[in-house]
Amino acid sequence: MTGQNPLLEVRHLRVEFPTRRGTLVAIDDVSFTISAGEVLGVVGESGAGKSMTGAAIIGLLEPPGRIAAGEILLDGRRIDNLRYEDMRRIRGKEIGAIFQDPLTTLNPLYTVGRQLAETMTTHLPITPAEARKRAIGWLDLVGIPAAAQRIDSYPHEFSGGMRQRVVIALALCAEPRLIVADEPTTALDVSIQAQIIALLKSLAREKGTAMMLVTHDMGVIAEAADRVAVMYAGRIAEIGPVRNVVKQASHPYTVGLMGSIPPLDRRVERLAQIDGAMPRLSAIPKGCAYNPRCPKAFARCSQDRPDLLPAGPTQAACWLYDGEGTHHG
């Protein structure tokens, strides 16, 4: 991706929550890019800040959360400081969002056809008749059988998997250049999940759409992502090509996380486990946030906070890789 301008660029993003007991830092100095046609997976445990990073990008942070520092650029243009109305126009047209629960995304009072057509007429210069025709096309594309008949159905008339397909059609129909998908398959059964992932992946490839795929499921990431960012306590612990992160992780946290996934192909007597739990935002340890749980921690880890350092093919925020260039190989 050298020389090519990234579609989305997040620079030193910091999200804060002011509370009565002081300011909590939910996202701390997060930077990454996504190119057109690329799928960036974002993984981490609950509370690591992965969903919040997505919310910050689409401009839907829950108050009192706010972007305290950093920039978000879409195609070179800053979008983090836009007024609400300007951002609303970008959302839907330039950035599509897919959330975990399809029922809360769809309006129960409108037919899916109306919701699709309305989205398209709002963002694209087309007539209502054309929008309806395209809506049928989209439903067909996301794999809803008999789309021409189902277009006048209400969301409750669809099953969970079909509803999530409608949500995907809704996110894609204005032909956005970036999709933020937050746990799009978590509420679905495995057999449906496989269908939805395959669909998202092929659509991103075909249309050259960039995608940020937020999930806690490493299997989904391994399947769908080109690159992965692993988040821990509001920071990126490791980022790199999916194959390297999954199979030969550098950061001790990624190693622990991967080790704790129960394998499907064999039985192990005891699963690798990371002792303890992720710290609360109000009690993030000094130095590297992972140091109290890290089997490889040394003196410096509890003093200084590491930034992302080159660690072979990936980048890891870990002091083990300080001076990596000299002893690499």
Binding site: S191, A194, A222, V242, V246, K247, L264
Partner: peptide
Amino acid sequence: LMEAIPDLDM
């Protein structure tokens, strides 16, 4: 069901 599980070994 087994077929549907994402493949971690890639």
